[in-house]
Computed example of a mutant assay.
Amino acid sequence: MPRKTRLALLIFNSLLFAGAVPAADDLTPSRRLRVSDVFHQGEAVLFHDDFRSGRLDSWNFSENDQYELAKPTPERVSVVDAPGLAEGKMAVRMVVQRAPDSFRSEISLPSEKGFQERWYAVRLLIPDEWVFDPAKGDDIVMQWHGIPGNWRPTHPNLAISVANDRWFVRQHFGSPQDKPGRTKVELDEPVQRGVWSMWVIHAKWSPEDDGLLQIWKDGKLMMERTGPNVYGTIGVDYTPYFKTGIYHPEWHLDDERKLTAFEKEMPVATKKIVYVTGVTVGDARMTLEKISPKP
């Protein structure tokens, strides 16, 4: 069998196994929520979800290279009891199994027009069963992404990821047509498995020098940076949209070289799982004290 055919079959079979390719009688319309569907415009708290409803009505879904899904695959994205939290607390559980081209399980909020100043709060759990892998790249667990314009950006404006046992923050901004600006910061604190981390992100999104980014973890300021933090040359002004879950680029097998390496590898980690709850988005009137997740 030609190698390209084998690559296509491996990818299709893995997607079918993972539920990303539905059977003919299971096709459902796609959906894409907009800001007006989920944000409380004019209020200081624009959005909050602690998942106690057991539903994901306020979220968009993406699995592998599929976007605007009408519903997620339950084995990939589901609302469950929040591990280690009080009875009645709920969280969304996102899973990626190691398989050819199985690399993404995420939920996301819509993008907003214009460059807005926003506050975000998120509680996130890297569970005990997470396997630290020093040989592999990052697992992005939170990201703020750009929408396509006259040039399709391929990197999020802001990403918080896990690489081995460390937290990293990456930024991409400026002009994707030319060479965009990039930063990478390793945070001082290691990743603790089985412990909920509480994140607050304050961003004044701007392509100019008046941009601002502040990140707190568990009440401690981990990073502060001024200057541009979005793409400014794609022909549209927008606030990057928030995504969370698992995105593991190493399992995105979009060429033969990656497939060959994947087949030969003796894997250390065969499954990625994260839990998220208490997602809040606030406007410029918000403060650190008001939005910080309570222990």
Rank of each mutant, 00 (worst) to 15 (best):
Met1Trp: 12
Leu16Phe: 15
Leu16Val: 13
Ala18Asn: 15
Val21Cys: 12
Pro22Tyr: 04
Asp25His: 11
Leu33Gln: 01
Val35Arg: 13
Ser36His: 11
Ser36Ala: 14
Ser36Glu: 12
Asp37Met: 04
His40Tyr: 11
Gln41Ser: 13
Gly42Asn: 02
Leu46Thr: 05
His48Pro: 04
Asp49Ser: 00
Phe51Gln: 01
Phe51Cys: 03
Ser53Cys: 02
Gly54Gln: 05
Leu56Ser: 03
Asn60Gly: 09
Tyr67Met: 14
Val77Lys: 00
Val80Pro: 01
Gly84Asp: 02
Gly88Val: 02
Lys89Asp: 13
Met90Val: 08
Val95Ile: 14
Val96His: 05
Ser102Cys: 10
Phe103Ala: 01
Arg104Ala: 06
Ser105His: 09
Ser108Met: 09
Ser111Ile: 01
Lys113Ser: 11
Lys113Ala: 12
Phe115Glu: 12
Gln116Ala: 09
Glu117Leu: 02
Trp119His: 00
Arg123Tyr: 03
Leu124Met: 07
Pro127Gln: 03
Asp128Cys: 05
Asp128Glu: 14
Asp128Leu: 10
Val131Ala: 02
Gly137Glu: 04
Ile140Thr: 13
Met142Gln: 08
Pro148Met: 07
Trp151Arg: 14
Trp151Gln: 14
Pro153Thr: 07
Ala159Lys: 08
Phe168Asp: 05
Phe173Cys: 03
Gly174Ala: 01
Pro176Ala: 07
Asp178Val: 12
Leu187Trp: 07
Trp196Arg: 04
Trp199Val: 12
Val200Tyr: 05
His202Cys: 01
Glu208Ala: 13
Asp209Gln: 14
Asp210Ser: 07
Trp216Leu: 04
Lys217Ala: 05
Val230Asn: 01
Thr233Asp: 10
Thr233Lys: 14
Asp237Asn: 12
Thr239Gly: 04
Lys243Phe: 08
Thr244Asp: 08
Tyr247Ser: 01
Tyr247Val: 08
Glu250Pro: 07
His252Ala: 14
His252Asn: 14
Arg257Gly: 15
Phe262Leu: 06
Glu263His: 04
Lys271Arg: 15
Ile273Phe: 07
Val276Gly: 03
Thr280Phe: 01
Thr280Lys: 09
Thr280Cys: 07
Val281His: 06
Leu288Thr: 09
Ser292Asp: 03
Pro293Gly: 07
